[in-house]
Simulated assay, not measured.
Amino acid sequence: MIWSYCEWWNSLTDTPMRPLTPEQAQARHDSGQLYTAVASPRGNSAPELRVEMRMETGYSSVIFMDALGRDSLDYTFTLINGSFFLEAATSYEYGDSQERGGYADAERMEVYEFTTDGIIRGLVEVDGEESKETRHGVDVTGNWEPVPHFGAYDALIRRDRT
């Protein structure tokens, strides 16, 4: 992976906003300020994912992107007792749409919210129709991740979390 850094990612234009040098991004990481790490498989290729970090508010998000730059999967973590807890997972499907980035409307969206005491709330939305489900007693030990050092995002960017 080739990492580049910016303050935040503009989903509508598929571009970094306020690019940062690695040194500037590390300073933001160390101070808890917002920055985004963008991963591409090779130099000058389309990004595959981005990691948003904002330790001052105890937030991190890993967003996987499809070939058209659209968000396909978003893992949102919150800081609890010095570790990150995966509190939400949102997936998006766009059907046959060829719209790029933030201009595309998802045909299907699934949102799963997790609590530390083993409750999962699920919402599936397909073409405006919603269905909800809640489960109790779910083992969420796999939802915990250590807070990464700058640039060491491997534990957070695991796509398969089952």
Rank of each mutant, 00 (worst) to 15 (best):
V124P: 03
V124T: 10
V124S: 07
E125S: 14
V126L: 14
V126E: 15
D127I: 07
D127W: 11
D127K: 15
G128N: 08
E129S: 14
E130G: 07
S131D: 15
S131K: 14
K132M: 11
K132I: 09
E133R: 15
E133P: 06
E133Q: 14
T134A: 10
T134E: 09
T134Q: 07
R135I: 11
R135E: 13
H136V: 15
H136N: 15
H136P: 05
H136W: 10
H136G: 10
G137F: 03
V138Y: 02
V138C: 06
V138H: 06
V138N: 05
D139W: 00
D139Q: 00
V140K: 02
V140F: 03
T141C: 06
T141H: 09
N143D: 05
N143Q: 06
W144V: 04
W144F: 05
W144G: 01
W144T: 02
E145I: 08
P146I: 06
V147K: 02
V147P: 02
P148S: 02
F150K: 00
F150W: 07
F150I: 05
F150C: 05
G151R: 00
G151I: 00
A152V: 11
A152I: 08
Y153A: 02
D154W: 05
L156E: 02
L156F: 03
R158F: 08
R158K: 14
R158T: 08
R159I: 05
R159V: 02
D160P: 06
